[in-house]
């Protein structure tokens, strides 16, 4: 599943990230890469974008971009 399908507040581990586009490389530069624990912090009032917490920071991304990040939910 991808990050945007997590429930708000749910934590997950990144298992795969396609890095074939500049947008995805931006996510990697921020430290979003396989093995990292992420948490879906919130969804914007209009349904998009979403805010993800990882490595002690909070990053907003659109669901489209989040779609390339495959995760496995924790707990």
């Amino acid at each position: 599943m991808d990050i945007s399908s997590l429930k708000v507040g749910q934590r997950a581990r990144v298992v795969h990230l396609h890095a074939s586009q500049p947008a995805e490389q931006r996510l990697m530069a921020l430290g979003l890469m396989p093995g990292v624990i992420v948490r879906l912090a919130r969804v914007a009032p209009l349904g998009d974008p979403i805010a993800i917490e990882f490595r002690g920071q909070c990053v907003s991304m659109r669901k489209r971009e989040a779609g390339v990040v495959e995760v496995e939910p924790l707990g």
């Binding site: 586009q21 500049p22 947008a23 931006r26 996510l27 921020l30 974008p49 805010a51 920071q57 909070c58 990053v59 907003s60 991304m61 659109r62 489209r64 971009e65």
Partner: peptide, 9 residues
């Protein structure tokens, strides 16, 4: 097409 928008909060 669709632009990406990744933004640190």
């Amino acid at each position: 097409r669709v632009r990406s928008f990744v933004l640190e909060l």
